[in-house]
């Protein structure tokens, strides 16, 4: 099935700004689904609120556009109730890491078989350019007019610390890598976290002296490198890309099936 068949064409053109990285991520996710030959009726996309969340409306799956920060909690209900579904949860950085931070770490801990995609543009775009927990110190934002003093979360380290069994990072510049990582993430048995750095030229770029989308894409190209590369050894300030964690661990719905089995045998009072 061509990728175009996975979208709801009548809603295009999309609402994202010119130069925004989210469209690239949408295509990357859909290509991964297409290459895995998933049936549309077997996929549920669950999002929160923000620029990222609009992604679900463009896709022709079962789509659930929820509340700010709560996508993973809704998705947990969907997946746990019907484990045969493929559940993919695209979220923004504020959505997933600030208001949704608690749900994020507990989803990692629970290891329920879903894929969380953190579309990280380091800014709240829909509300007009406020700093997020992934912005980091020194970033200019409408709520940090003199520069941000908040430290940033490292999504990868947070997911690892919370027990994530598949943790990866790439960028909107590295389209082929998005597709290959997303395929592995969706196929991973357990909770998978994929952070994709995305550019927001309208708010992050303008506020932070980056001339436009292409300059921001250059940043992703020049300032990131594969995990453990020689370039990283030479310049430790480079951001690593790739799959940081990929390990086998028993999955939540399967573990619960064992509870059902025990309970129906009357082993549990």
């Amino acid at each position: 099935m061509p990728v175009q068949d996975y979208i709801r064409k009548r809603f295009f053109p999309h609402i994202w700004c010119g130069g925004c990285g989210h469209g690239i991520i949408l295509k990357g996710i859909l290509s991964a689904i297409e290459e895995l030959q998933l049936q549309k009726k077997d996929v549920v996309m669950v999002s929160g609120i923000g620029c990222s969340s609009r992604i679900v409306g463009y896709t022709d799956f079962h789509t659930l556009h929820t509340l700010h920060g709560r996508a993973l909690a809704f998705a947990t209900g969907v997946k746990f109730s019907k484990p045969s579904l493929n559940v993919i949860v695209p979220m923004g950085d504020g959505d997933a890491m600030a208001i949704g931070g608690n749900h994020f770490i507990h989803a990692c801990r629970r290891n329920i078989n879903m894929t969380a995609v953190i579309m990280n543009n380091r800014i709240y775009g829909m509300t007009g350019g406020q700093f997020s927990p992934l912005s980091g110190q020194g970033v200019m934002a409408t709520t940090a007019p003199l520069g941000n003093i908040d430290y940033a979360f490292d999504t990868v380290e947070l997911a690892k610390g919370a027990g994530g069994t598949f943790v990866a990072r790439t960028t909107a510049y590295h389209y082929a890598e998005i597709v290959s990582i997303m395929k592995k993430a969706i196929q991973h048995k357990g909770f998978s976290v994929v952070e994709i750095l995305s550019q927001c030229p309208t708010y992050f770029g303008r506020k932070n002296k980056m001339k436009g989308a292409s300059e921001m894409m250059d940043f992703f190209k020049d300032r990131t490198t594969s995990i453990g590369s020689d370039a990283k050894k030479a310049d430790p300030t480079l951001i690593e890309r790739g799959i940081f964690v990929q390990k086998e661990s028993s999955e939540y719905c399967e573990n619960y099936d064992k509870i059902i089995e025990m309970a129906s045998k009357g082993k549990e009072s």
Partner: peptide
């Protein structure tokens, strides 16, 4: 679980409410 039903203890009441809607 005795009847094949699902029980989940979520991380807070917000998540619990969201989960029952999803389910």
């Amino acid at each position: 679980p005795k009847g094949g039903g699902k029980f989940i203890q979520m991380e807070d009441e917000i998540a619990s409410m969201c989960a029952i809607i999803g389910a």
